[in-house]
Design a protein around this nucleic acid. Structure first.
Lengths: 379, 379
DNA sequence: CTGTTAGCGCGTTCAG
DNA sequence: CTGAACGCGCTAACAG
């Protein structure tokens, strides 16, 4: 960076020749492999072999040690861009999550990051908002960045990307959704078992008239949970009349509110509401509260996922704990294994756990309660 | 259509060798710039110039259009590894967050990702757990990956990394902590104003005996909030006796519990507890509940941050809303501006908002309550 | 405005 | 086991 006539005149004032800072930046340290090689007194190629775990045994131990020492002394760090260009492997994973600020995802992400780091991979995080267009753009961009694989945490069943990603030949693992026809591994919670636990729990309490606020049927979890609930109830000899089953469009409190209002307006009696997700349950609780219907005295409510703080909301929520962190870990593990080994497609279903809290209890004795009927049947 | 990896020889013929699938993986698409150039009938360099926004005006519009068309037709995507190697810019940002699964961070991360994406950058996320060793390793590794800059979301005041990062010449922005002596930009909430609002709120309700559960003094937020509270109380003519001020080691519910117990055991009277963070407040609420001390009837409690669900815990928490998403956005914006422009260090302090909920109320009339004294003074 | 040339830093053939 | 040479795909510099 030659500075004009800088000798003598030490004008630190606002120079009109500001250095372009971007040009001064270098990736990683300034030390390159050839510096290490020189320092160690060996050829570049030898240094490369010594530093690379995979080829380290092709070099004399003593030479390797010398190279190590030199690298250490100089603070050498491999230049990933060069390595990637040469090897076609970036050791980066693209992680597509609808919205990291939705509470289901952060623990998963943490699990992903932890495992990837253990294996020398890094995670490139992007937000999709479930927007197919955007997803497509992101996958494209991440592939251009050279990611070695994808983790797709998306709930939607229809997912054109899956065929693409597979076609493009990049190992992919889906998270929080069950198996698909595409040749990609998946990690999902045992939604069926969770719903079976809930059904058994409610039945044991004595509930017979059960309502259902179902998650979106275009999501894998929505379908699996609804199916699981239906099957479990059937085994218990229970059924849900059509008027007491409302499907939602999204997993949100607002949709829970909307659905719960419809249940109340149906005029049908019920003593429990099973929902497909904690947020839906929170919405249902809001509606019960505004309608002065006691929970669990008059109506019990269950959620799914056991999001943070569900043990602190009022009433605390009976729900099914999903091992979010572990799901993230497993997804990353599956991907890494696939990456540096044989290609194997696995479908992992992780166990869940019923967590009983305040929002469920015995149903009111027949004839003493109004069984969830709305106080004000207007609107 | 995978190309045989035959070095040198330009055998475009389809190989019958069953390729190792892992080896067949290529970053981005299989189309290279030279394919686009050939398709468009121009030289590689021209195609490069046409496709690169920064140099696009150095090429004839008609030629550029031709190149665009060819690129579109072939589905060309630039190879970032090659570009990075050549330009020394990766258009990736390293984001260091203690633990993404702590509820303060996800909205920030979303803000970061959104802004970065708008500007063509990608985010590499790592978890530090506030571990200095680990941070150092991660910074090193991310620099080797060629990141153009860092966003450091760490609360700790002492941060050796800051000098390093600056020294190494990579633009850096700190998030959720106030300015430092290092030449890095920062984005932080207006902790002082938030505490002033809380102090004024409590004073207006009539509180005089106020206790304090302070955040860790080795965190920037801990210090700023404590200082802000003290100053505000002083202006209001109030003071906190030493026995009613407990400092915590971390921002956690457990530490809130510990601190609240100490307050109760002090024997001093108080009608309100100001805490440095919502989690500490939740811990305090737990202790009040277990001690059968009504909140807010006997003791009011305040938090800080307004984490998700704070409007649903019991009692709902009076706290200070921090614009987490916006903080993330601003941090990313600052960094991007610094990256492709003049070096400018800015210190942003974002406004906060007092949110009054159920956990604060008028203090009990003097003599009628026990003013926060523990019911059981044992243990 | 476009073509030519060179090299970013590394891993991987080949020889020896 | 080590040294030499080459090229991964792209962009910056320099002609023309």
């Amino acid at each position: 960076m030659p500075r004009p006539r800088s000798d003598g005149a030490d004008t630190t004032g606002s120079s009109e020749m500001p250095q372009n800072p971007a040009r001064a930046i270098r990736p990683g340290s300034d030390i390159r492999l050839r510096d290490v090689a020189r320092e160690a007194g060996v050829h570049i190629a030898t240094a490369s072999r010594a530093l690379n775990p995979r080829t380290r045994d092709r070099v004399h131990p003593r030479t390797a040690a010398k190279v190590d020492a030199a690298a250490e002394r100089l603070g050498y760090e491999v230049n990933f861009a060069a390595r990637t260009l040469r090897t076609q492997r970036s050791e980066m994973i693209g992680v597509l999550i609808p919205d990291i600020s939705r509470p289901l995802y952060p623990p998963m992400m943490r699990g992903i990051v932890d495992v990837l780091e253990e294996h020398g991979y890094s995670a490139l995080l992007s937000a999709t908002d479930e927007d197919e267009q955007r997803e497509r753009r992101l996958v494209s961009s991440l592939r251009a960045r050279g990611v070695d694989g994808f983790i797709l945490a998306t709930a939607h069943v229809r997912h054109p990307l899956l065929e693409d990603a597979a076609t493009l030949g990049v190992p992919t693992v889906t998270l929080n959704r069950t198996a698909t026809d595409a040749p990609v591994s998946s990690v999902a919670p045992d939604n069926e078992a969770g719903m079976a636990d809930i059904a058994a729990h409610l039945a044991a309490l004595g509930h017979v008239h059960i309502a259902h606020i179902a998650g979106p049927s275009d999501t894998s979890t929505g379908r699996a949970r609804t199916a699981g609930l239906m099957r479990a109830l059937e085994r218990l000899g229970l059924t849900i009349p059509a008027e007491l089953s409302v499907e939602t469009e999204t997993y949100s409190v607002a949709e829970g509110v909307r659905a719960a209002r419809r249940l109340l307006m149906s005029g049908q009696q019920f003593t429990a509401i099973v929902t497909g997700n904690d947020l839906l349950a929170l919405g249902a609780l809001d509606v019960l509260r505004e309608s002065r219907i006691g929970c669990p005295e008059q109506v019990s409510v269950t959620g799914f996922n056991d999001l943070p703080m569900m043990d602190r909301v009022s009433p605390t929520l009976t729900t099914v704990r999903v091992p979010q962190y572990e799901m993230g870990r497993q997804a990353a593990r599956l991907l890494v294994e696939q990456l540096d080994g044989e290609i194997m497609v696995h479908h992992l279903v992780l166990p869940v756990e019923l967590v009983v809290r305040e929002s469920t209890g015995r149903p009111p004795a027949p004839g003493t309660g109004r069984l969830g009927r709305p106080i004000a049947a207007t609107s």
